[in-house]
């Protein structure tokens, strides 16, 4: 989004994307908000929190509020080192309804409120940066719970048989996008690839390896079983009905305006 405004990305005409297998034009087939001026959304991924079942004897966390509850669930928590998603988690756990999260966050009081909520667990937080870290930290017992990308936890569950459990409550849903760097010498080949990667079968093929769900209806219809283990993929998808009782759609417009200020505040907060 900012890349498009800043002239860093090539424009991609959605009319040139492949139609659905049944002939529905791409512009009707893609889910809302997945097609932007300079990029094509291909999959939905989500930031959730997860815990290690074996290291969590007794009561198990079930809601986002539990992640912030040090009394009932003591121990260190993993969170990504960025204000993104964490501020939203904090507000939701502080009782802000999903629809109002960005409205609240856009005010100075809202930001203070989010940071105050994060303050309550700050001494126990281990900050991660790479998506591979949370499953590792959970498996090692470095933390008792961690926010994570749902696909990374899925991989640890099915490929490494780690006893990790995802808590879907309060997940923050985002869209993975493909864009083309402006001024590339290989524009045609890049467009060709974007067209290929955004077909329904391509999206479904990705979804047979990792639990990220297709950004077009026809792709979603093709989701089947996991390529290596044969388990049903749908129940592991972030867009699966069971998993979306409380879900927040990440708002890029808010973030592109506030990112610098939020980063600044967040760094200051971390350093204090």
């Amino acid at each position: 989004m900012s890349g498009c405004d800043e002239g860093l990305l090539e424009r991609i005409d959605p009319a040139t994307l492949a139609a659905a297998p049944d002939g529905t034009p791409a512009t009707d087939d893609f889910l809302p908000d997945t097609l932007l001026e300079c990029s094509v959304g291909t999959l939905f991924y989500s930031t959730v929190f997860a815990y290690n079942d074996e290291r969590m004897p007794g009561e198990k966390p079930a809601t986002l509020e539990d992640f912030f509850d040090l009394e009932r669930f003591p121990g260190r928590r993993g969170m990504r080192r960025t204000p993104l998603v964490n501020l939203e988690f904090a507000l939701m756990a502080d009782g802000v309804p999903v629809e109002a999260v960005y409205e609240v966050l856009d005010t100075p009081e809202g930001l203070d409120r989010a940071l105050r909520k994060l303050d309550s667990i700050k001494p126990e937080v281990v900050w991660w940066e790479a998506g591979a870290q949370p499953p590792q930290m959970l498996a090692d017992g470095e933390v008792v719970m961690s926010t994570a990308y749902n696909g990374r936890i899925f991989n640890a569950q099915v490929l490494e048989q780690q006893p990790l459990v995802i808590v879907w409550d309060g997940q923050v849903l985002d869209i993975g996008q493909l864009g083309i760097v402006a001024g590339t010498r290989n524009l045609d080949a890049a467009l060709e690839f974007v067209r290929f990667a955004s077909t329904a079968p391509s999206m479904a093929a990705v979804s047979s390896h990792i639990a990220y769900s297709p950004a077009r209806r026809s792709g979603l219809a093709l989701v089947g079983t996991h390529a290596d283990t044969g388990i049903e993929m749908m129940p592991h998808m972030p867009t699966y009905a069971e998993n979306t009782r409380r879900v927040l759609n990440s708002d890029w417009l808010c973030w592109s305006d506030q990112m610098d200020a939020m980063n600044e505040r967040f760094s200051a907060w971390l350093a204090q």
Binding site: S2, E6, Q258
Partner: peptide, 17 residues
């Protein structure tokens, strides 16, 4: 425009959009 907007936004947050 984007480069300009991001410089100004850094001085006064919220102006980018």
């Amino acid at each position: 425009l984007g480069q300009v907007a991001s410089r100004i936004n850094r001085v006064q947050s919220g102006l980018r959009s």
